[in-house]
Design a protein around this nucleic acid. Structure first.
Lengths: 383, 383
DNA sequence: CTGTTAGCGCATTCAT
DNA sequence: ATGAATGCGCTAACAG
C-alpha cells in the first residue's frame, strides 16, 4: 500500500510517502520548495491539471490577462499574448470547461435518450445527430433506456443534473409526466421518431401512415389476398401510424381487415425483433393460418419472418411476399433482398439536432412549437 | 419577434416584453417585487434552474444546511431535513453537477473514442461499456473519429477539457504522440481492441493470431488449397495478428504463402467494408485468380465477398468457402449462414470499463500496467 | 493594455 | 444542529 501525507511546519513542507508491507515500512521524505504554499501542494497532490493561475504566476501577469489571451479577447498586448500562449503550451494547459460552464450557464452538450443505440435504425439516426452536433461544436451524452420507462425517467434527471443545453428524446409512448414537466418549463427538447398528439413540443418523425399504406398497397398490387402484419407494441405512434396505413390500403383495395391478422411482438431484449418475427411467422404456419403477404413493422422482424418462411420451404415473393420497414443497410444483403419502406434515418437525426439547436439558441421560450414530417418511400427489391 | 428588456430604476423593476410585428408593437409591463435584486432578476431571466440558495431562502436556513440535507450528511435535524426535501421537490431542484465537479475534481464521466459506433462490432462493444458504466453510475461521452487521426487528436483534447475521469480509446495504429503524452502523465486510459507493443498502458484485446489461425486452419481442413485473405489496412495490430495466424496455419499445413493472396481494403467511408469485400472478390474473379477459400478480416467484408461469389454463380462452401471475423448478429441471417471467428465483443467493452474504473479509483499513478487478452473461438456454420 | 474584484453553485471546514 | 466563510477555475465588469 502507498500513502501520501503532507505535513506543514513553520518553514518546511514535507511529503512523506510510506510504503508499508507486512514486515515493516520505510519512508521517503521529499523537500518541497517553500515558494509553494500548502494549498498549492495539496492541489498538486490531488490533480495534475494546470490552471490559468499557474500560467499567470509563471508569466507574472494576472489571471484575467491569461484568460483574455487564451480566449482571443481584444485589449491585449500581442507580445504578452504570445508569451502566455507559449507558457500554456509548455505547461500542457487544458481548460476546465466546468468552470466556464458554471459561469456561462451553457454546456454545449446535449443529451440523447434512445432505447437501443446498437439497433441499426437508431444507430443511423444517431449518426445524423452526431454529424450535426460536431458541426456545431456540441458534445453528446448518450443514454440507452432499453425501452424501460424507469431508465428514461432516471436519465432525464441525470441529464438535467449535467445541465445539458437540450435533450433529444426518442420517447416510449408511455412517459408523460416528467417530459411534460420539462415542456411546460420550456426546456429545449425535441421528440424524435414519435408523434405525440396535443403536446406543445417540437417533434420530428416519419410519415408512418404513408409508409404503412405504401407497403400494403404494394403487396396487394403484387397479388396478395391475405396480408398479415407483424408489429411492435401498439402504444407508440409509429406502429399506430403504420397500422392505419395498412388498414387504409386494405379498405381502398376492398380487402377485409381482421384483428387476427395483426400479430404483436412481445418482450424487449437483445435481438428480440428478429426472434419475434421468426416466432410469429412460425406460429402462423403452425396454426395453418392462411396468408400470402407479411408487412413487418421493421426490417429486423422481416429477417426473422423470412428465416421462418425459408425453413418451411415457402418461396419468398412467390408463396409469400414480405415487406419490411426502415431500410437498414443489411436489407440489401439478405436473400432475397428485402423490399422495404425507406425512412430518412440520417436526416431525422441531423434535422432533429438542428431543431434542438434552434430552440437552444432562440432565448425565446414561448409556446410555439414546430413539427417536421419526413417523407418515406417504398424500395422494391426481391421479397 | 419577441424581445425582453429589464430596466432597473430607483424603486421599480420593470420587465418589458415587446411584441413587434409588421404593423407596430405593443408592450406588457410587469412589476417585479423589490425583494429581488437586479442580479437575481437577470439570473431568473437567464436560467430557470433553482439553486440550493433558493431553497435555503425559502426554508429560512443556510445553504449548507440545505447541502447537508440533500446529501444525506449527518448532523441534521430530521424535521429540517424533511422540510428542505419537500421544498426542493416543490421548486423542482436539480443539482448542478458542474459546481460539484469543480469542487471535487471528479466528473463521473468517461470518454469513449471509437471509429464508428454504428459498425455492429463497435456497437456491441459499446453496449458492454455502457452496461458497466451504468452499473457504476458513470456517464459516457462518445466520439466517432471516423478513423481519422485528426479527429482522434481533437476529441482527446475535448475530453480532457471536459475533465473526464478516464478515456477508453480504440486507437488507430497511427496515433502515437498525444496518447503517449497522456500515458506519461498517468492519465487513466485503456486501449481497447488494439495491442500496442512496448507501451506502458492498460490494454484489452482479442487473441487475433489465434483467430486468424483457427479460421485458416478450418479452411484448410475443409479442403481448401488456395486461400485468399481480404484484410483491412495492415498498420493495426488486429489485421497484423490475423495475418500472422493465417501464415502460421498455412505453414503448419504445408501450403505456400504468397503476397498476392493478401488483398487490402482501401478507403474508409460509410459501408466501405461490404463494398471492399465485394470489389476485391470481383477483382479476383475478373483477373481469373485461382482460389477456393477466403478468410475475411471481418464479417462485413465476408458479406461483400459472398455477394460477389453469388453473382458469379459460385457456390459458397462448395466452390469457395468463406470465413469471417467478429460474429456479429447478422452473420446468422445471411445465406448461407456465415462461418466466422467469434469475438467477445460485449465482454471486451465491459471489461475495458472495469479496467479503466480500477485505474481511476486507485490513486496510484505508477508505471504498472495490465493487459488482458480475450479468447476467441471458431463458429462453424455453412459458408 | 492590464490588474482587481466579484461571483457562478456547491461542499467543506470551522465556529457557534 | 446550524451558520458563516472559503474556494474550486474561470470570466466579466470595472477601474486604473
Amino acid at each position: 500500500m502507498l500513502f501520501t501525507y503532507i505535513l506543514y511546519t513553520k518553514n518546511l513542507l514535507l511529503s512523506i510517502k510510506n510504503h508499508f508491507d507486512f514486515f515493516g515500512f520505510w519512508c521517503k521524505i521529499e523537500l518541497i520548495p517553500l515558494t509553494l504554499t500548502l494549498k498549492e501542494v495539496i492541489k498538486i497532490s490531488r490533480s495534475s491539471f494546470v490552471t490559468i493561475k499557474d500560467i499567470a504566476e509563471k508569466a507574472g501577469v494576472s489571471v484575467n490577462t491569461v484568460s483574455r489571451a487564451l480566449n482571443d479577447k481584444p485589449d491585449i498586448n500581442p507580445q504578452t499574448k504570445e508569451k502566455i500562449e507559449k507558457i500554456a503550451q509548455e505547461l500542457g494547459y487544458v481548460k476546465n470547461v466546468y468552470a466556464t460552464m458554471l459561469k456561462s450557464n451553457v454546456t454545449h452538450t446535449i443529451g440523447v435518450i434512445m432505447s437501443d443505440s446498437s439497433n441499426p435504425f437508431f444507430s443511423e439516426v444517431f449518426k445524423g445527430i452526431d454529424k450535426a452536433a460536431r458541426e456545431n461544436n456540441y458534445q453528446i451524452i448518450i443514454m440507452n433506456s432499453e425501452g424501460l420507462y424507469e431508465n428514461e425517467e432516471k436519465f432525464l434527471k441525470t441529464l438535467l443534473e449535467r445541465r445539458v443545453d437540450g435533450i433529444l428524446l426518442f420517447p416510449m409512448q408511455k412517459s408523460y409526466e416528467d417530459i411534460q414537466e420539462l415542456i411546460k418549463e420550456h426546456f429545449p427538447i425535441v421528440l424524435v421518431g414519435r408523434e405525440i398528439d396535443g403536446w406543445n413540443v417540437d417533434e420530428i418523425f416519419s410519415d408512418e401512415e404513408k409508409g404503412g399504406y405504401l407497403a400494403t398497397k404494394y403487396l396487394i398490387e403484387k397479388g396478395c389476398k391475405k396480408i398479415k402484419m407483424i408489429t411492435d407494441q401498439l402504444y407508440n405512434s409509429a406502429s399506430y401510424g403504420r397500422l392505419q396505413g395498412y388498414k387504409k390500403a386494405l379498405k381502398e383495395k376492398g380487402l377485409a381487415f381482421s384483428e387476427n391478422d395483426i400479430k404483436i411482438c412481445e418482450g424487449i431484449h437483445e435481438g428480440y425483433h428478429v426472434k419475434a418475427g421468426y416466432d410469429k411467422t412460425m406460429e402462423m404456419i403452425r396454426k395453418k393460418e392462411e396468408f400470402d403477404g407479411i408487412f413487418c413493422y421493421n426490417d429486423l422482424i422481416a429477417y426473422g419472418a423470412i428465416k421462418a418462411l425459408k425453413e418451411n420451404n415457402l418461396k419468398i415473393s412467390q408463396n409469400v411476399s414480405v415487406v419490411g420497414y426502415d431500410d437498414i443497410a443489411f436489407s440489401r444483403l439478405i436473400e432475397p433482398e428485402l423490399t422495404t419502406v425507406k425512412v430518412k434515418k440520417f436526416e431525422m437525426g441531423y434535422e432533429a439536432f438542428q431543431m434542438l439547436y434552434k430552440r437552444i439558441k432562440s432565448k425565446q421560450r414561448d409556446n410555439s412549437s414546430t413539427r417536421k414530417v419526413l417523407d418515406v418511400e417504398l424500395v422494391v427489391r426481391n421479397s
